[in-house]
Nucleic acid binder design. Structure first.
Lengths: 224, 224
DNA sequence: TTTAAATAATAGTATTACTATCTTTTTTAT
DNA sequence: ATAAAAAAGATAGTAATACTATTATTTAAA
């Protein structure tokens, strides 16, 4: 019995819930493929419509614009990450091992654990690395933030911050360290792929590099 | 005798050097104001042309597109930062004080030291915080990187990495730590301004927050 | 002072980012 | 089973964006 995993993304993100119809799910599936292929800037609703054999108008019934669609995808990812985190931490008690598990999760491709997934996780991962900061690095951030659509990110950040605090009760910046390791995980992965001189990757540690760097960083800060 | 500061940005970034004509300098000056006002997404050459009383065609003679213009501004900023860094570190010998000076520079508005500046540094600073990652977080990064236009960023990163290594010869990730503190400086400033729950800012430490966090981070990692 | 280079003025094109309308199909409620 | 409602498809249209091209005018350099 394969369980289909789905997460409720804040209603303010979409006009019609894409999880609730075949067309909606197709939009998300094809968007992930297409954004990964073209990059977010070159991605348009027109191209998406052609790609999936429907019309622009149909897509506009689900999302106000492509920024909202990206926000949906990224939010979905954070919810999935949050779920995986709960799942993987459930039987762990040692806060150090908990934190190591979190760092591993942040710096590796997401595992497709428990249930079947509609989306291409490899692509989703790349999109998060390259495009996720574009959802908040916009002029309208304050306006968008009012509708609570950044909640999944904030909740994940708070959850990781709690584990950080459990490792070192006196550490004064758990939330900032949390958001920093989330962002740095992406950046170091991106840099090691495309601008390696901004990192210390070597051909040897290529795959483990981001993980090793972040682990070293975190456990230095938290005093082992 | 006021010295006008100027930096040579890689020729591949522009079609015609904006530093070498009045129109060119006006383009940069007005771009900084307009990008800061509208955000990069809403900023267009048309709006810029109207704002400065010229035509779109004139601007296209200087820059291929708005992404290149942003790249120019950001590159200029890194060059200016590099210059300030040399300037401020010149009489320092203690590597710890050097690193503290660097962190202060990264987390505060740039000082307008030595010479007169054409550009609005306050705005430039905000643009770097909000828009700088958009110059490399694009599909064409590898292609763009070939023309060496990211050099100013890489050089600054290397310079900071050298100071990091001077603080701790055995630390294995100087370049990654360097790029991480550059990026985290921006992110933590952005978050503390717009999404404070991702940080540990308080009304009290508001202005010093990013600096305090990064200092604590760096000197924990480098073992005091 | 001639020539070249830069700018201004204007026009035009393909694409993007939508909105509107009407018809057909599918779903749901009775 | 059927009527009503909702969703999707088909088509059209508009304003703005992201350019390119052409010619005339001004400015700077040889």
């Amino acid at each position: 019995m394969a369980i289909k995993i789905s997460f409720k993304v804040n209603e303010a993100v979409f006009l019609r819930d894409p999880e609730k119809s075949e067309l909606g799910r197709t939009i998300i599936k094809h968007s992930i493929d297409l954004i990964n292929n073209l990059g977010f800037e070159a991605f348009t609703f027109k191209k998406l419509a052609i790609d999936m054999g429907t019309t622009e108008a149909s897509i506009y019934r689900y999302f106000e614009n492509k920024h909202r669609l990206l926000l949906y995808i990224i939010s979905w990812y954070w919810k999935y990450m949050d779920f995986l985190l709960d799942f993987q931490l459930q039987n762990l008690t040692d806060p150090k091992i908990k934190l190591k598990t979190i760092i591993k999760l942040l710096t590796h491709e997401l595992p497709i654990s428990a249930g079947e997934l509609d989306y291409n996780i490899k692509f989703l991962n790349q999109i998060v690395i390259t495009e996720s900061s574009k959802v908040y690095l916009v002029k309208e951030v304050t306006e968008i933030n009012k509708s609570e659509v950044f909640k999944p990110y904030k909740e994940l950040c708070a959850k990781i911050a709690a584990v950080i605090s459990a490792n070192d009760k006196k550490y004064p910046y758990p939330k900032s360290l949390s958001s920093t390791i989330i962002e740095a995980s992406h950046h170091q992965q991106f840099f090691s792929q495309h601008l390696p001189r901004l990192t210390d990757v070597t051909p040897k540690n290529k795959n483990e590099f981001a993980c090793l760097f972040i682990e070293n960083l975190v456990f230095s800060v938290l005093g082992k």
